Simulated scan of single mutants.
Amino acid sequence: MTVISETEAHFTANSARDKHPLPATRNQAEHAVGAASAESEEVVRLHHVNRRFGTTQALKDVSLTVKRGEIVGIIGRSGAGKSTLIRCLNGLERPDDGIIEIEGNPITGLSEKQLQSVRSRVGMVFQHFNLLSAKTVEQNVALPLKIAGYDKAQRKARVAELLALVGLEDKAAQYPAALSGGQKQRVGIARALAANPALLLCDEATSALDPETTRSILALLQSLNQKLGITVLLITHEMEVIKKVAHRVAVLNGGEIIEEGPVWQVFAHPQSALTRTLLSGLLPQLPEALAEKLSQHRAGEAIYSVHYAAQDDVGQARQGEILTLMAAELAGQFRLIQGGVDHIQHYAVVRFFFSVPVANAESEQNILHWLQQQQAHVELIGYVTGHA
């Protein structure tokens, strides 16, 4: 019962039909999004938001803006406050203090009836799909439109358009039980888009899916963002998801945003220990056998890590360019241990580890000076005696 009532809380949101008319075609939908863009640059604004449950502070002084057309990821471990944040955004939770605005309209302090018109601008995609098993795909997608009072012809036209948009035009008459997990999530996305929202909230939308299906759903979200200009706020605990689709990322820990910025920048220069931990599976790491030998006693070899980001030139990746230059200009002065390059938002993001003999202080200084000139972030992580 709880799941259905939470889902229907979003469906009943579309009573303000005269304010946001339902586009009958995709062209009209795109025109409506373009018109709305002129109204407000910021789709979401949180300003010093706090939410407490007894002695537990689920959100602590959270401030964040999401601009129209952005895909912004909110990442954090279980218990970080992600679910509370998303429930505050869709009006299912009320913050104790602070300001939340959707398209410039404050939602804190609104009555349940007043919240309905705000929710009409917010689509919700759930982790476990939340489809009604007794209704067909077509009926599930049409449900928010039916509740809002659209006639049968309008509903049928809009549902057909949406199912084509998510690649399920041949599944309209099927029931959820006959669908795969990825197909169910596509139905959930189509339903969330039914009333042409300005904002799509995705709450762990891929965490119940296998890796291949996850990739297809993320590609769909990217496509919808590009075709419709829809703003997406993605709640996840998977940094891989952030890397694939988000433009910006905010790291949530203990109810606080501890780091925020463009995805490429956060990958290239993670500031917090938590962010570095979340990235550990995606970025090259020091070999375990070598890490176990690390000491703070200056002897043997000094081990350094390097983070570096360079913008790709007209889409041509500058793969490993810093290593090529380093090897050419400082040949024989260092030993490369491990490294790799990734490409995020037209940036080549490089991380590698190298060592230099402590006895050769001149080489060490030459290398550090050269890397600083390249605007690379260099960190001494310890010393080892002998080779790993």
Rank of each mutant, 00 (worst) to 15 (best):
R87A: 08
E288P: 09
N225D: 11
A268T: 04
F354V: 04
L228N: 06
I257Q: 13
V187R: 08
Q374G: 04
Q154V: 02
I258L: 05
A16Q: 02
Q222D: 08
A153W: 05
S40A: 12
A24I: 02
K82S: 09
E362F: 03
H269C: 08
Q333I: 09
N196T: 04
V122M: 00
L325H: 15
Q319H: 10
S117D: 05
R155C: 14
I86Q: 13
Q116F: 00
Q183F: 03
V141T: 01
V137K: 01
V159S: 05
Y383S: 00
H237R: 07
A194I: 03
Y383W: 08
G261Q: 10
P197H: 02
E101T: 10
T12V: 10
G69N: 12
Q127T: 04
Y304K: 06
V122F: 00
D151M: 09
Q114C: 00
G281V: 12
A250H: 14
T25Q: 02
A148D: 01
R335T: 07
P197K: 03
V263S: 13
A299V: 01
S305L: 11
W370E: 04
K60S: 11
L274H: 07
L290E: 12
Q373D: 01
T55P: 08
N225P: 11
A291D: 09
F11K: 06
A9Q: 14
I99A: 07
V72D: 06
T214D: 03
G182A: 06
D313P: 07
R52C: 14
Q374C: 02
T25M: 07
T108Y: 04
G261C: 08
H269I: 06
T108V: 12
E169N: 10
A36C: 09
Q319W: 04
G315A: 10
V159M: 02
E93C: 06
A192R: 07
A359W: 00
L22Q: 07
H237V: 09
L233K: 15
L92K: 06
E138L: 01
D313Y: 14
T108R: 15
F267L: 11
C202Y: 01
I147Y: 07
F334I: 06
V356F: 01
I147K: 04
V187G: 01
S207R: 09
H269Q: 11
L252H: 10
N225R: 14
Q271I: 13
G315W: 09
E138Y: 03
K184L: 06
L200E: 02
L110K: 15
Q28K: 13
N50Y: 15
L145Y: 05
I100W: 00
A190Y: 08
L371K: 01
P211G: 05
A148H: 02
E42G: 03
R26W: 01
E292H: 08
G332Y: 00
L193W: 09
A219I: 09
D96P: 12
A310Q: 15
R318M: 11
Q316I: 14
P357T: 00
R215A: 15
E138M: 07
G167E: 11
W264E: 14
H297F: 05
T12Y: 05
L199S: 05
C88N: 13
R158L: 02
N50S: 13
H237A: 08
